[in-house]
């Protein structure tokens, strides 16, 4: 398969065959395996940027990968703040990278 997958491992052995499914990230189709999380499926396809910071617009991807940091939050079927690292993929799942805030609220700080 693709070079980002660890299909064979010297200690764990080879991956058993899993069902191929398709997910959509910002309307682009990506191949995934059943059992992937959104984050692992997208990374396997070379997608690192999962969202942009709502206020500053800087790109973000996974950071902790176990649900602590909320950096990988995406929208799934219209639901906000879904952690890509903890959410298993489903066939035809529609994932969006979220939206930028229209205006900055940070004026008079300090």
């Amino acid at each position: 398969m693709n070079s980002m997958r660890v299909d064979n491992h010297p200690v764990f052995g080879s991956l058993e065959k899993r069902k191929n499914i398709t997910i959509y990230f910002d309307d682009q189709p990506y191949a995934a395996y059943e059992g992937d999380t959104i984050a692992s499926a997208l990374l396997a396809s070379g997608v690192r940027t999962l969202r942009c910071h709502e206020d500053k617009g800087t790109p973000r991807g996974i950071y902790c990968n176990i649900g602590h940091c909320f950096e990988c939050r995406v929208r799934v079927h219209g639901q906000n703040t879904v952690r890509a690292c903890l959410t298993p993929v489903e066939n035809k799942m529609r994932i969006e990278s979220g939206i930028l805030a229209t205006a900055s609220f940070k004026g008079g700080k300090l």
Partner: peptide
């Protein structure tokens, strides 16, 4: 904060 920077545990789980 750049995508591709992760905690060491994140890489392990991945």
């Amino acid at each position: 904060t750049l995508p591709g920077v992760m905690s060491i545990g994140a890489a392990q789980v991945m």
